[in-house]
Amino acid sequence: MTVSLRVFLVGGAISYRALFNWIRPGMYAATMLGSPLFQILFFTYLGRATGSRDDNFFVVGNAVQVAAMSGIYGMTMGIANERQYGTLHALLGTPANRLAIFAGRSLPYIANGLVVSAFGFATAWLLLGFRVEAGAVLPLVVAVSVTTCSCVALGLLIGSIGLRARDVFFGANLVYFLMLLVCGVNVANEDLPGWLAAIGRSLPLTHGIEAARAAVDGAALGALAGPLATEASIGLAYAAVAFCLFRWFEREGRRTGSLERS
């Protein structure tokens, strides 16, 4: 138990430092803070230019979505880079608990996503006049936390696919950009064609953003239970599929000798 806990915590921290390509301060500031800031500004101004919904709609949607940057890109790096850097066979040669290895990796990216999202809200407060009632802060934090966890689960899935697929970052980029369209970030789910809205509802983020918007509008934590439970369930489902894929690719990789095949 203690060993698994150590693999979960220490292993997770070490893998974050080793595999997250954007961890250098300059790179981190530019990519994880600068880019989300301008994303929030861009879409809020687009909303203003078209006379679409109010600023809060775009600020909340994008400030929650930027947490997915850490969840999807970071988590993809955290799993798939083992193969890129040639360390996968060493990792899978250890007797360590696979669930501890797998789950431990997600923790730093969850924390990272929360930092990025908080930065997004703070800069929107500073530059765009975004305001939130004191009583809405706790429900908003809960909504963002649940959403970040479910986005990390999606990242785990893409990362696991990266243990086998050649160009996993293509998939990560595509998913990240599609989320901007189908997850209610900038376009409300009801304004999308039915098939796009259905895709959005089956992805992490959509229900979390819905909860975050309700929180900013003053809904109590209890009132957010529905969308947050849906968001958490979707996240758990993605995490479960990701872990099954991880184990399956490990078994297949051993059987066919294709663990590090590129």
Binding site: G47, T50, S52, F169, F170, F177, A188, D191
Partner: peptide
């Protein structure tokens, strides 16, 4: 990656812009 950046990404961003503009008053 370039197929994504030069075809899929602009298509996604233009779709967002079209949908946002549709719901807009301007």
């Amino acid at each position: 990656f370039y197929v994504l950046v030069s075809i899929l990404q602009p298509v996604i961003f233009s779709s967002i812009a079209f949908f946002v503009a549709r719901t807009g008053s301007e």
